[in-house]
């Protein structure tokens, strides 16, 4: 339960961090909050020769509105999702999801950039970037780019991030008055990994759904949008029949893995239950 020996470098700028990574022959890991990486190192699931601490890089901090988006710096801690007024106002889905992320002391250290970069399929924030149609700002040896959340999550713990790249910020489209959102998860204990979790962002005209993005976590190898269920709801009013149709669509949208402690049929059932509840709440907000 002790990490293998490594060297430690505290970077002051993004350039320093990228340079150190390149010169370590890519056998390096960036560390921010470290709430998932430190246990992985302690269990020797990972054993890099260099740890590059990015938590003192000012460019990765701060939350501000920028061109129709809320730019949330990668080092924004989970606890700040609860206290930062601009997040509560302009990205409320992240604000309501935050209390479900692990435990208070973990939220004091863990960062949004780290959570999205790890892409744990059971994590709240990666899935919420999908529901929010967020964009991930990436910096690396070949420059800076923005990747849509839809294109970011590739497979189990695999993302569009290339070796030596790091996340600079998450850009979330500003919440509008004609939008509604809902979030919840089912877990055995509070703070435990969700058996199933879901976040929804809908654009409405009166009680009619113009557009909707529904993202599940803990249902497969990646956070998952359920596009069949979304299609069943777009252009419709949220009535009992529509909600039932969306729930039925999950059968095709989701394929929970076999050989898990939770059987696929149970996970699918819980997903249906959760979706029904959330759409019900979304409808009540009409």
């Amino acid at each position: 339960m002790k990490a293998r020996a490594f060297s430690y470098f505290r970077a002051a700028t993004i350039d320093q961090a990228l340079d150190a990574h390149a010169r370590a022959g890519d056998d390096a890991r960036f560390i921010a909050g470290g709430q998932s990486l430190v246990p992985a190192l302690s269990l020797r699931l990972q054993a890099p020769r260099l740890l590059i601490d990015i938590t003192h890089i000012d460019e990765l901090r701060g939350v501000r509105r920028e061109g129709g988006y809320l730019r949330i710096g990668a080092l924004t801690r989970h606890c700040e999702m609860l206290t930062e007024a601009s997040i509560a106002e302009s990205a409320p889905l992240l604000h309501v999801a935050a209390p479900f992320v692990a435990h208070p002391a973990i939220r004091n250290r863990g960062t949004i950039g780290g959570s999205v970069a790890l892409a744990d399929p059971a994590s709240e924030f990666p899935a919420m970037t999908l529901a929010l149609d967020a964009e991930i700002e990436i910096v690396g040896p070949s420059g800076r780019r923005r990747v849509k959340a839809d294109d970011f999550f590739i497979d189990l713990f695999e993302t569009a991030l290339q070796p030596g790249e790091l996340i600079a910020a998450i850009h979330v489209p500003l919440f509008r008055a004609d939008q509604r959102f809902a979030f919840d998860e089912l877990a055995r204990r509070r703070g435990d990994y969700a058996l199933v979790g879901c976040g929804i962002m809908a654009t409405c005209q009166g009680s009619r759904i113009e557009d909707i993005r529904i993202s599940f976590f803990s249902v497969g190898n990646t956070p998952t949008r359920v596009k069949g269920a979304e299609r069943a709801l777009i252009g419709a009013r949220l009535d009992v029949e529509r909600i039932a149709a969306a729930q039925r669509a999950l059968e095709c949208d989701l394929a929970p893995p076999e050989g898990d402690e939770v059987p696929p049929a149970m996970r699918l059932h819980l997903a249906r239950v959760l979706l029904g509840r959330l759409l019900g709440r979304l409808g009540e907000g009409a």
């Binding site: 430690y8 560390i31 470290g34 709430q35 430190v38 246990p39 601490d53 002391a105 004091n108 250290r109």
Partner: peptide, 13 residues
């Protein structure tokens, strides 16, 4: 000033 796990941080950090 904030509660954190001292097992989830290396002393150098």
């Amino acid at each position: 000033g904030r509660a954190v796990h001292s097992c989830l941080i290396f002393a150098v950090q």
